[in-house]
């Protein structure tokens, strides 16, 4: 039983990171119908930033959390304004290709500016201490991850459901043309979605690096892809779906490794994508997705 709970806790900690990434992907997709391939690379930049912050001695942990979050949030806005905004009104595939380009640009700039070699990522000591609650062993980082995700989800849900910008965001994601027509400045709304989503990706970069202890310029690809899977499982465009999808994916991934015979653990990604196929077979729009067809 303890073993099951332990795996569940590990899965939720990993799933939290997928959830943070998936939120940005799903918000942007909801409004622009863009699968932003550069999202994982923003996360990678967040991890490098966190490494720099932690590397400079005697800096409180809170800065290691805040700096990647804030800076990557701004970086996301910059990417939107320089790469995607000029393509408003162009076919969706043009933006998709552009996002692949941005992804490569960010990866290769990091290779050129720093190094293609992986480097180790050392968490401040306080975060690596582990302790036991009810037979489950958790590190401070796990606890921080879970805590941050809960707080951020509550905050985000208040923002999306209660604020004026959040309301405009939901309207834009339902019908961008109509939102524009009734006088919503959709560029503000899109900008807000990029800032928020990228900030969460920056934070995810710190948490991911802390979890695996190693960073490299191409580290963003896999979590980016997994987060996309999470968003699709949850129903792309739905923020609640992104969170639930991320958690399911995290728990499933850890579960596959923890409960299947060791010789299968190399196939964890095959199981993850198999899960995606299964969900889509039963619910083609994902768990919380709505079909595009609404009552006329």
């Amino acid at each position: 039983m303890d073993y099951v709970l332990q795996q569940l806790a590990n899965g939720l900690a990993l799933g939290s990171i997928y959830a943070l990434l998936a939120i940005g992907l799903t918000m942007v997709y909801g409004i622009l119908r863009l699968i932003n391939f550069a999202h994982g690379d923003l996360m990678m930049l967040g991890a490098y930033l966190a490494a720099v912050v932690i590397g400079s001695a005697y800096i409180p942990i809170v800065l290691a959390v805040l700096v990647p979050t804030v800076v990557i949030g701004i970086a996301g806005l910059l990417v939107e304004r320089t790469a995607y905004k000029p393509l408003r009104g162009a076919p969706e595939v043009a933006m998709l290709i552009t996002s692949l380009g941005v992804s490569r640009l960010l990866q290769n700039s990091t290779v050129m500016g720093l190094s293609p070699q992986p480097r180790s990522f050392k968490l401040p000591g306080d975060l690596t201490t582990s302790f036991e609650i009810a037979g489950i062993r958790l590190t401070m980082l796990d606890l921080l991850t879970l805590g941050l995700v809960v707080v951020l989800m509550v905050g985000l849900s208040v923002f999306i459901n209660k604020s004026r910008t959040g309301m405009a965001m939901r309207a834009s994601s339902e019908n961008l043309q109509a939102a524009r027509l009734i006088g919503i400045n959709v560029n503000h709304v899109i900008g807000a979605a990029f800032v928020l989503g990228s900030a969460l990706a920056g934070l995810a970069g710190f948490l991911w690096a802390g979890r695996y202890g190693i960073i490299d310029p191409f580290m963003g690809f896999e979590p980016g892809l997994k987060a996309f899977v999470a968003a699709v499982i949850g129903g792309i465009g739905s923020i609640r779906g992104a969170v639930v999808g991320g958690m399911i994916l995290g728990v499933a991934e850890i579960g596959f490794v923890g409960f299947l015979p060791p010789e299968f653990s190399g196939f964890r990604d095959a199981f993850v994508f198999g899960l995606l196929l299964l969900v889509l077979l039963v619910r083609p729009n994902g768990l919380f997705g709505t079909s595009e067809v609404e009552r006329a």
């Binding site: 939901r170 309207a171 043309q177 109509a178 009734i182 006088g183 919503i184 006329a296």
Partner: peptide, 19 residues
Amino acid sequence: GRLIFGRLSIAENLRLGAY
């Protein structure tokens, strides 16, 4: 075609008109 926001509440639709 009206283009109302079907997933938003009626009150929210009206409020957005005053954005």
